[in-house]
Amino acid sequence: MKIIPILITSVLILSGFGVIGAGYGLESNTTCKTIKLTVSPLEINDENDKYVEINLENSNSYLMKPGKPMLPKIVKTFELDFGVKNIKVELLPKNIRVYKIKKEVFPSPALLPLTNIKMTASKVVKDKTIYQNDLAYPSCWFEYHTGCGLSKKGDKRVTHVVVDFYPVRYFPAMGKLLVAENAEIKISWDKPDRKPLPENGEYDLVIIAPNAFANELQRLVDHKNNHGIKTFLKTTEEIYKEYGGADKPERIKYFIKDAIETWGVKYILLVGGLKNTIWAKPRDDANQGSRDWYIPVRY
């Protein structure tokens, strides 16, 4: 693969250019964390006679949307205490350079579905609304989202904050790249007013299954309880009556959330599968299957 020559111009970008969020005062119950990132040197490689490929050695992912420029990104995940509130994220890019390129950045290919059927990769078609635009792509230096789950060690529940940093931004109509050589990420959050989960859980395990399996599973429940694992059985029929939701998988989800927050449940056992491997249909629609499942599934 050939490395092509490029024209580099150093520029000074005012702090705050393309940064989401402004400064804010920290209250007494607010915790703040700051980390600094260093971006590895930019690599611009010839892909073919029309496109170039953009790489960074220390990027761990790519911004890939079909037909849009494929650009490297750096993903950072932070673990905060479970139940924290008012999470705010700021990212300040530093030491920004301008790179002039003569070819367009290679567009991301369309995603192919996971299937056993042999498929041929479709021709890459670029999104002209992006490539003929003189605005930056992506439109900002970073995005972030939050969620809850287990810690990396798997020993406790935490709040995850995932930051997608886009160190390379592309101006297609101008043939120009903005590259941040450094960045500073600042995260702040408020501590929860109370413990979001019980200190001492009433139960360790909940088994979710249809009523048809209840009698047989009761023996398992008794066995677990006799060995010090506090267990109870909840039937799908009971859940559907007691919990609302857009569909049956969502009702199951809300029950599990309630079981964790109310009884401190640590483990969930789902019992059930397709009612028949010959005539049963796995999907009711594009999002879920319920009718022919003992336990509904989400797609």
Rank of each mutant, 00 (worst) to 15 (best):
28 S>H: 10
134 D>G: 06
28 S>E: 13
111 L>I: 09
16 G>P: 10
126 K>Y: 11
90 E>D: 08
51 Y>Q: 02
70 M>K: 15
284 D>C: 05
89 V>K: 00
127 D>F: 00
170 Y>T: 01
77 T>S: 15
276 N>V: 03
73 K>D: 02
136 A>H: 03
223 H>T: 08
201 G>W: 05
143 E>S: 15
252 I>G: 03
271 V>E: 01
37 L>F: 04
14 L>D: 14
224 K>V: 02
74 I>Q: 03
183 A>Q: 02
80 L>V: 07
227 H>G: 01
120 T>G: 08
212 A>K: 15
80 L>T: 04
243 Y>C: 00
241 K>I: 07
297 V>S: 00
19 V>A: 12
41 P>N: 03
41 P>K: 06
86 N>M: 04
230 K>E: 06
295 I>G: 02
264 G>P: 12
157 R>I: 04
206 V>T: 11
84 V>C: 05
72 P>F: 01
25 G>K: 14
160 H>Y: 15
53 E>Y: 06
99 Y>H: 13
245 G>V: 07
78 F>N: 01
1 M>D: 07
248 K>W: 04
177 L>Y: 05
22 A>P: 01
293 W>M: 06
231 T>F: 05
180 A>I: 01
253 K>C: 06
69 P>Y: 02
176 K>I: 11
213 F>P: 00
233 L>A: 12
15 S>D: 13
296 P>V: 08
61 S>A: 13
254 Y>K: 15
156 K>M: 10
218 Q>K: 10
167 P>R: 03
165 F>P: 03
261 E>S: 12
21 G>S: 10
102 K>H: 09
293 W>D: 00
72 P>I: 01
203 Y>N: 07
92 L>S: 12
226 N>D: 13
176 K>Q: 14
248 K>L: 12
299 Y>D: 08
45 N>W: 04
173 A>M: 14
11 V>H: 09
41 P>C: 06
254 Y>E: 14
175 G>H: 05
207 I>A: 05
179 V>I: 14
286 A>H: 13
63 L>H: 08
1 M>W: 11
62 Y>P: 00
119 M>Y: 12
65 K>N: 10
171 F>I: 11
182 N>D: 12
102 K>D: 15
192 P>M: 06
91 L>E: 00
278 I>V: 08
27 E>T: 10
277 T>K: 12
149 G>Y: 14
45 N>E: 09
76 K>Y: 03
282 P>D: 12
129 T>P: 00
236 T>A: 08
162 V>D: 01
8 I>Q: 14
94 K>C: 02
249 P>T: 05
72 P>A: 01
259 A>R: 01
101 I>T: 08
75 V>I: 14
39 V>N: 11
240 Y>F: 15
256 I>M: 15
241 K>Q: 14
227 H>N: 14
281 K>W: 06
38 T>G: 04
269 L>Q: 11
156 K>R: 13
249 P>E: 07
261 E>G: 04
178 L>A: 07
8 I>V: 13
221 V>D: 00
262 T>H: 07
177 L>N: 02
133 N>G: 09
248 K>A: 07
132 Q>G: 09
7 L>D: 13
174 M>I: 01
6 I>S: 11
167 P>F: 01
41 P>D: 03
24 Y>N: 11
279 W>D: 11
28 S>N: 15
53 E>Q: 14
109 P>V: 08
256 I>Q: 08
176 K>T: 13
223 H>Q: 06
76 K>W: 01
